[in-house]
Design a protein around this nucleic acid. Structure first.
Lengths: 236, 236
DNA sequence: GCCGCTATATTGGTTCTACCATTAAACCAT
DNA sequence: ATGGTTTAATGGTAGAACCAATATAGCGGC
């Protein structure tokens, strides 16, 4: 044995966090459960309240718990907030020189894969959800509710990811959508009409399980969209 | 305006963390720089040391800083540790019912697009790095150093991702590798011989820019690997 | 002069105590 | 019933003290 891994003396708050993580992992406590109050935890672990708080801070940042103030408040186990991932990537973007173009390219690639898998695995329920989404977008466009529309437009891609039946891909798509949301600008109603027509064509192709054609349609659509977003900003 | 978004009163440690995040984002402080000691920060922000510590804890968890004890220790800005992402996904796996099969499928999909992009964009340097990797794996196999070999095997896929020139894809691949590392079992030398032959074939195809054929070779390889990993565990 | 040991100062890690702020529930008044 | 008021529970903040690791400087022996 000649692997001299440098020792990392564990800090007590890390031990506490790991202990709680372990209990979540082993299913001893699960989504919706409430942890004991900080003061009780401090006593149980035989540490100070500060250490407990730093542990909770870490778990909160990881999206494993949410904290509520006041009576009957406390630390509640969540079902896992995927946004922590996009937050992390966002941090890395601003730090390590990831560009929007990088994200967009990656998104296009992954969308292609998703379309292929969705074409193979989508169920009637999935198609129904996608149809419903496009219908709603159309309504909202008529109602000029552009904010809600934008959200639903992104939801479309997430629904598509869900049609693959693979939650990891759903996670990735949600992450990328989160990232794009930060640079999103509302689009005018005229642009949207094109999008809706394209979506309808796309769904028809997907229903016929024609992955290649559907993928092509989606690619056209995304390219158009990308051009719209890349247009020089217009002062309102 | 009828959107009554629930108010979220900011906690002071969040303000502190955001302030530091902002300074990193704006380039006022960058990779390698050292933040003032906690006591000084507390004074500057006009808060208690506790609040500062919780802010630093948050930034540390986000992979933006690392903390060192002792004289001339402190909080150092890192260049962004991508492992925070795989940690997050790992948490979600244990919580939200992601299975290894899900991860593997996603990985196969993403590897496909990576191969395509790598075939289009790989430079001579990339090819050289990939060649070197396979050579080293071969050496290590002869030397029976299975741990180092496993790391290099994963490195191969990361190098491939780097050949796409898109850091987002590199990030994704690193994440997936981290996830797979947790279930990794050493493989015997005989299995490795096959892998090396496959890699050499793959690289030849990639050099000829034949994305489809390279992709097929990689897929075969990964399928074989997946079967190896899925073999019932053998008690040592 | 060089090696090794020993202060010593710096700095993150931890503890303790006290108090503030928010919240839900119980209670009370109209 | 409705609406305000107390009350207790609980997270958030503060501040002071001390512990533990660690780099640096300085000292001592050879």
């Amino acid at each position: 044995m000649d692997d001299f891994a440098p020792v990392r003396t564990a800090r007590t708050f890390e031990l506490i966090a790991d202990s709680i993580r372990g209990q979540i992992r082993d299913g001893k406590i699960g989504s919706g459960d409430k942890l004991p109050p900080e003061r009780a935890l401090a006593e149980q672990f035989g540490t100070s309240r500060n250490a407990v708080r730093e542990a909770l801070r870490s778990l909160e940042h990881a999206g494993l718990i949410t904290l509520h103030k006041g009576a009957h408040g406390g630390a509640f186990i969540t079902n896992g907030d995927p946004r922590v991932i996009s937050r992390s990537i966002e941090d890395l973007m601003h730090l390590g020189g990831l560009t929007l173009a990088n994200v967009t390219e990656a998104r296009l690639s992954i969308e292609t894969v998703i379309v292929a898998l969705a074409a193979a695995h989508a169920t009637d329920d999935d198609f129904a959800a996608l149809d419903r989404n496009v219908d709603t977008v159309e309504e909202l466009t008529r109602a000029r509710d552009m904010n809600a529309k934008a959200d639903l437009n992104m939801e479309f891609h997430v629904l598509l990811a869900e049609a693959t039946g693979n939650p990891v891909l759903v996670l990735l798509m949600k992450t990328l959508m989160d990232l794009l949301r930060s640079v999103h600008r509302p689009i005018t109603a005229e642009d949207t009409a094109d999008i809706i027509r394209s979506r309808r064509r796309f769904l028809a192709l997907l229903r016929s399980r024609d992955a290649a054609a559907a993928s092509a349609e989606m690619n056209d659509h995304l390219t158009v969209l990308h051009d719209l977003f890349s247009r020089p900003e217009i002062p309102q």
